[in-house]
Design a binder for these strands. Structure first.
Lengths: 159, 159
DNA sequence: CAAATATATGTAGTAGACTACATATATTAA
DNA sequence: TTAATATATGTAGTCTACTACATATATTTG
């Protein structure tokens, strides 16, 4: 056991990020092993457009929980890959509407079985005493009620 | 509920990272609110050198679980802040030995109460049905046994 | 003991997210 | 109906980690 693991809770942000990276890297390898050229970071956009076929930039950003600049850079990559395309909204000229191309739709079809495999592998991996996915959801909901900063401020007063 | 939250498990890497960022940002604000000029990313190095006073670059990297280039860039910042200093190992000329400066030791003293506050706030935040810290530890141990990729490969054969 | 290999450190460039700022179009209010 | 405000998109630069490669010193092996 190293010092950081012992410090536990204080390095929780670091631990979360490390775990995220590890899973993402293996995820990429799984797509690759299935002969599919797909980066895990694209998943949120593609999955969202698969379920809601026509959305604007900001609508996508909100759905996937990213800022709009992050979203824009993902959209750029995906347009370059010809997996999505965009057109101006005729009613609201500010908006750019995105949708899957045919190539994108075909890819989604090919990815479905991979998604099933990933789902099962993930479910197996996190099926421990404390379920990671549920823990995330619970903490997210805790933070919605009261931010981490506010919690620390409250503790501060208690001392 | 948006599409990504529904897809749950498939976007777990994304969810972990988002949570990590959120906590880290608030963590920075907590130090700031206590009048301490300290970035959460420095924590692993400082905490490690506090508990093991003299270590080489690679030894620190292993302790904190980072790659050595990442560690080197943290060390550079901390030397610039004069929180740590380094000297050549006289026995093994390849090694550079790091330790806290007096300024670094004083800072650790000032941070102790903040660490207590952060610990309590975190404990409160993750004290839900599924404890996030334990869930992380459990998944890390699962991955040690069998990588996510290997799990996916095994699922693949099952299909 | 010289050559091959291993270990320690360092540099450059990449990845995936962010914030801050800028601009264009829509909407609301005076 | 103009002026003020809000919304949608875009650009530039930052942050915190990474991988790939390079170099210097130690250790091991033939």
């Amino acid at each position: 056991m190293n010092v950081i693991d012992e410090s536990g809770i204080l390095a929780i942000a670091t631990r979360l990020q490390r775990l995220s990276d590890q899973i993402r890297k293996d995820g990429f390898q799984v797509y690759k092993a299935h002969g599919i050229d797909f980066e895990p970071k694209w998943f949120p956009v593609i999955y969202t457009l698969f379920h809601k076929p026509v959305l604007s930039v900001v609508e996508i950003a909100n759905e996937i929980g990213y800022t709009h600049p992050s979203t824009i850079s993902l959209l750029k990559e995906l347009e370059k890959e010809k997996l999505i395309r965009s057109k101006k909204d005729k009613i609201d000229e500010r908006k750019r509407l995105l949708q899957l191309t045919e190539k994108g739709q075909i890819l989604v079809g090919q990815m479905q079985p991979v998604w099933d495999v990933l789902k099962m592998a993930t479910a197996e991996m996190i099926d421990t005493e404390n379920n990671l996915m549920r823990a995330i959801e619970e903490v997210e909901s805790q933070l919605k009620e009261k931010s981490f900063f506010d919690r620390a401020a409250a503790q501060m007063k208690r001392v």
